[in-house]
C-alpha cells in the first residue's frame, strides 16, 4: 500500500480484556514487531466499520479489532455485535479486493499476554507477506 516495506497496523483494543492483555504482554516484556498502534475503546462494539474502511483507504496496512472472548464481554453482549459487524465487513472488503488478512478480529482476555504477542506477531507477518507480494517487479 505504501512504498515503505514496513507495515503500519491499527489495533482497536477493548478496555476490560484485550487492552489489559496487551498490558500484560508489556509487563511480561514479550518482544513483538513494532508496527502496530493500539487505540483504546471501552468495548470492541464501539468500532464502527467506517473506521476500518477509513484506515485502510488512507494507507494503513491492516486493522485489527481485539475484544473479550464471547460470553466474557464486560457489557454482556457488546462483542456479539462486534462479531456480526466484522463478518459482514470482511465480506464487503473482500468483495472490493482487499485481502482478508488486512482486517482481523480476535479475542484476547486480560490474562492472555502471550496470546496478544503471538497474535500481533502473526498478523504482522501475514500483512508483511502481502505487502511483499504487491511489490512492483524490478525495472528492466
Amino acid at each position: 500500500m505504501v512504498s515503505d516495506k514496513e507495515p503500519t497496523i491499527l489495533v482497536f483494543a477493548c478496555n476490560w480484556c484485550s487492552y489489559a492483555g496487551a498490558d500484560l504482554a508489556g509487563v511480561s516484556r514479550l518482544e513483538m514487531p513494532p508496527h502496530c498502534r493500539v487505540v483504546r475503546v471501552m468495548c470492541s462494539a464501539r468500532v464502527r466499520p467506517e473506521f476500518v474502511i477509513a484506515a485502510l483507504s488512507r494507507g494503513l496496512d491492516g486493522v485489527v479489532i481485539l475484544g473479550c472472548h464471547p460470553g466474557d464481554c464486560h457489557y454482556s453482549e457488546g462483542n456479539h455485535y462486534t462479531r456480526r459487524r466484522a463478518l459482514l465487513l470482511k465480506e464487503l472488503l473482500e468483495h472490493v479486493g482487499i485481502e482478508p488478512e488486512r482486517f482481523q478480529l480476535r479475542w484476547i482476555s486480560a490474562s492472555e499476554g502471550a496470546k496478544f504477542a503471538q497474535t500481533i506477531t502473526e498478523i504482522t507477518g501475514e500483512i508483511e507477506a502481502l505487502d511483499r507480494r504487491r511489490e512492483p517487479p524490478p525495472e528492466g
Binding site: V41, M42, C43, E77, G78
Partner: peptide, 9 residues
C-alpha cells in the same frame, strides 16, 4: 455504561 455499542449502530 459507556460501551459505545449504540454509537457504532
Amino acid at each position: 455504561k459507556g460501551c459505545g455499542c449504540c454509537v457504532a449502530a
